[in-house]
Design a protein around this nucleic acid. Structure first.
Length: 129
DNA sequence: AAACTGATTGTTGTT
DNA sequence: AACAACAATCAGTTT
């Protein structure tokens, strides 16, 4: 609920170090108790209109790169598969593959994250309209 | 500070 | 131009 920030003033401090030494896999920010949908959330909420007109494109997730890479392949094997079918297949195989297999995609995601970091800075530093 | 919710990212094909 | 399911990730709000 992105409401008008007024109190907290984003008490979030910068990421400790820019060097991903150990790079905690996931145990710092993305907790969210139950990230998995109990049954199926598929909230058909259409809303691509971004609130920030000039907000920097966020870094893509490993799954995003995975889609770009395998999408064509899956689609080739399932030419009759629709959009949703492909997505389910990709999601299924994504969950089925080992972390080691995700490495290349995760690497891309991390790399994009760096790019986003720069874009974010430029976004914050650019107040011109 | 920690936890959580919302919004965002990319893809293809149709309207 | 927008939305459909999929998963991940960030940013901001809340307690």
């Amino acid at each position: 609920m992105p409401r008008a920030a007024a109190s907290t003033t984003t008490a979030r401090s910068k990421k400790a170090a820019a060097s991903p030494v150990a790079a905690a896999p996931k145990a710092s920010r993305g907790k969210k108790a139950a990230v998995e949908p109990a049954g199926k959330i598929t909230k058909t909420k259409g809303k691509r209109t971004k609130k920030d007109p000039r907000a920097p494109k966020r870094a893509l997730s490993a799954y995003m790169f995975f889609s770009q890479a395998k999408r064509a392949e899956v689609r080739e094997k399932n030419p009759n598969a629709s959009f949703g079918s492909i997505g389910k297949m990709l999601g299924d195989m994504w969950k089925g593959m080992s972390e080691a297999d995700k490495i290349p995609y995760v690497k891309l995601a991390e790399k994009d994250k760096v790019r986003y970091d720069a874009a974010k800075e430029a976004y914050a530093g650019d107040a011109s309209d």
